[in-house]
Simulated scan of single mutants.
Amino acid sequence: MNTTFSEMIDRLTATTPEQEDYTGEDGLLYCGKCHKPKEAYFAPDKAAIFGRDRHPAECDCQRAAREEREAAEKRQKHLDTVEDLKRRGFTDPAMRDWTFENDNGQNPQAIRARNYVKNWERAYAGNVGCLFWGSVGTGKSYLAGCIANALMEKEIPVYMTNFALILNDLAASFEGRNEYISRLCRYPLLILDDFGMERGTEYGLEQVFHVIDSRYRSRKPLIVTTNLTLSELQHPKDTAHSRIYDRVLEMCPPVCCTGGNFRKKAAQDKLGLLKELMNE
């Protein structure tokens, strides 16, 4: 037992010299590169405990190597965390490319999306979401995806989905509706894409209400994208839609997405390229 303890003390207090290291005038081992000590003397009371008069110390070279190693480990841990968040948070892998860095700069509402991320702590504390509404192809989903990616890069969990997938999941769920909806509400930010495009059956509307109402009660932010007009949201056709839309508008201040149809523009660009290739 004593031998094992002595061996452990030897390992903790011994310093292994490199070829270029040398012993200084004070009797300590010095680094041959940075010329800083690799050893330090114990205080007299500590020396009596360990049976040695010195212990290892970091020279500048060792400190720099350790800090670089720790920084690399921290970067890798961050990348692994973000990768896991995006794998869990997006229902479509293509959404990973919906970032501010990939934005073409033509969407006038992009600055608002950037500011939302910049002020996320205040938005979260105040339970402030956002409703991106406008015509088809105006970049609503893309802006929501930019927000999701930017927050995930900050290691904030986000889940981006749509009610078509939610209703399918609920129909096939073995864990029960309440547990599934509770899981949605645990995310700091929930993004519902293409709101209003789901089936208008009585069952479908009831499930939509339960999700929206549960999120409302969780007091956590919600971002919604929709092709519905603000007038349609403010003046629903019946009570079933009214109780859903009222909660959405209370949680999500509306932002109108205007401008050209980005999908049409992309299709025209591809058509132009095809004509060019065929003419060649």
Rank of each mutant, 00 (worst) to 15 (best):
L85W: 06
R69E: 11
V128R: 13
R199G: 13
A125L: 09
L192E: 02
D269R: 15
R75H: 13
Y142G: 01
D26I: 03
R75K: 15
R199W: 09
F195C: 05
A172N: 12
D103W: 06
L170I: 15
R243W: 05
K275V: 10
V158G: 05
F163K: 00
A150Y: 01
S242M: 08
A48F: 11
L170G: 10
C61T: 10
T13A: 07
R263I: 08
A57L: 09
L131W: 09
F262D: 02
T99K: 04
V248L: 04
W120A: 05
A14G: 10
Q268Y: 04
G24E: 06
S242E: 12
K36Y: 07
E39I: 00
A266V: 05
E18F: 14
T226A: 03
D80K: 15
S6A: 15
A43N: 00
K265W: 00
R122P: 00
K86C: 09
A64T: 14
R63F: 02
S214E: 10
R215M: 02
E202A: 12
D103C: 08
K237S: 15
M152F: 06
Y22Q: 10
P44Q: 02
K237Y: 08
V158Y: 02
A94K: 15
N279F: 08
M1Y: 12
M95K: 07
G145H: 00
D53Q: 14
L222D: 03
E39W: 01
K33S: 12
C185R: 11
E250I: 06
S218A: 15
V158Q: 07
L205N: 15
M8C: 02
N2K: 14
N119A: 06
L12Q: 07
R186N: 13
G137P: 01
M278F: 10
A40N: 11
P236N: 08
N162I: 07
Y245I: 03
N178K: 15
E202I: 10
L277W: 08
L205T: 13
R96F: 00
R247F: 07
I9M: 12
C257E: 02
S218M: 09
D92F: 12
T258W: 00
D10Y: 07
P37Q: 05
N178C: 02
F195W: 12
L273D: 12
E18V: 03
M95H: 07
L274D: 08
F100I: 06
